[in-house]
């Protein structure tokens, strides 16, 4: 417990952590201020007009679908038969669409929390992932490089305990910060929606969906934190983690993607970590590959779901962490 308290104090006292917190608050403040400045409460006339436009668009979608179905049944009037309809009408069915037009889509200069909450949360998660990775890497990297770990081991000569407490404290700290930051962030924008925009439709489905994204985002933040910590431990330096990420992005995500495309490899996205990050965060990622359509007509769409994405991310992060502990256990500390 003493070691945890000491590590928590050490983590909080680090300049880099403080700098990242300031950046988080700054990004948060700038986003909130610009949103507040660019939004106004809709007048009843604006609202009525937007609702009318949304209803009109929903009606048009329904009409198009009904024509397509009529074409399928062969009962479409000849005058309308020239219009293009797909072979399969299901994609046109408004009932199967992920999202139908709503009034908020036609309100300009009005912040609608229900519409904007999701992209705002993605932005926060992206920042927290970056925060977790960099803080995780620098926390152990600076300690290994400066001799802080050696000092600590002279006091507590149990390597796995010391490294485990460091990782545990780090993950606990980042988790706590992430929960507090996301609660403050969403509450602030909800409040902006209430006073300078509109809340939108905040039903159970909305909160369930937002909660799922938040939960997956928090796990991603923790995995990124553990990965940064593990790579810096393996490389004995913060820059090892930064170099590994930069190297991976350039060599694999850019270079190898080009090579795979030149070689006409099917579904090259399945070899990219970014695909699994996206699939995990969104729950379901739709990707396109022209090679899937080689033997006839198809839309070339394939889907990556969160289950394999979670397996890949856990394997990668867990594998690196286990390797870091195994190497640290036997390493000569000079």
């Amino acid at each position: 417990m003493n070691l945890v308290r000491a590590e928590l104090e050490r983590l909080g006292a680090r300049r880099f952590v403080q700098l990242m917190l300031v950046l988080l608050v700054l990004a948060f403040g700038v986003t909130a201020a610009t949103t507040l400045a660019g939004s106004h409460r809709p007048t009843p006339a604006e609202l009525a007009d937007a609702q009318m436009q949304a209803a009109e668009q929903r009606r048009q979608l329904e009409e198009t679908y009904q024509r397509c179905v009529a074409r399928e049944r062969g009962v479409l009037p000849e005058a309308e038969a020239e219009a293009y309809y797909p072979e399969d009408c299901a994609p046109l069915d408004p009932g199967q669409m992920e999202r139908l037009p709503v009034a908020a889509d036609f309100l300009f200069g009005v912040f609608t929390f229900a519409v904007e909450a999701r992209p705002l949360l993605y932005f926060l998660i992206a920042f927290l992932v970056l925060f977790g990775f960099l803080v995780g890497a620098s926390y152990i990297g600076a300690d290994l490089n400066s001799g802080g770990v050696v000092n600590l081991l002279l006091w507590r000569p149990r390597r796995l305990t010391v490294l485990g407490v460091k990782l545990g404290t780090l993950l606990g700290g980042v988790a706590l910060l992430s929960v507090l930051a996301s609660a403050a962030y969403l509450a602030t924008f909800w409040f902006i929606g209430q006073v300078a925009g509109q809340a939108g439709r905040l039903d159970t489905e909305f909160w369930r969906s937002l909660g799922a994204i938040w939960g997956r985002g928090m796990l991603l933040v923790l995995l990124a934190t553990a990965t940064g910590f593990a790579i810096a431990t393996l490389g004995r330096h913060t820059s090892a983690a930064l170099g590994a990420v930069a190297g991976y992005a350039v060599v694999w995500e850019l270079g190898a993607r080009l090579v795979l495309e030149i070689l006409d490899v099917r579904r090259p996205d399945q070899y990219m970590l970014s695909s699994y990050v996206g699939a995990w965060l969104t729950g379901r990622l739709r990707l396109w590959d022209e090679h899937l359509c080689a033997n006839g007509f198809c839309d070339g769409i394939w889907t990556l779901t969160w289950e394999p994405a979670l397996a890949v991310l856990l394997t990668l992060s867990g594998g690196l962490t286990v390797a870091a502990f195994a190497v640290f256990r036997r390493r000569d500390l000079m």
Partner: peptide
């Protein structure tokens, strides 16, 4: 024990450095 030239976090005071070590130990 001290081994070779020990390094400390430059941004910490000596007091804080020792307090953290004392707490950890």
């Amino acid at each position: 024990a001290i081994v070779e030239s020990p390094q400390f976090f430059g941004n910490f005071t000596a007091h804080r450095t020792l307090r953290l070590l004392a707490r950890a130990g």
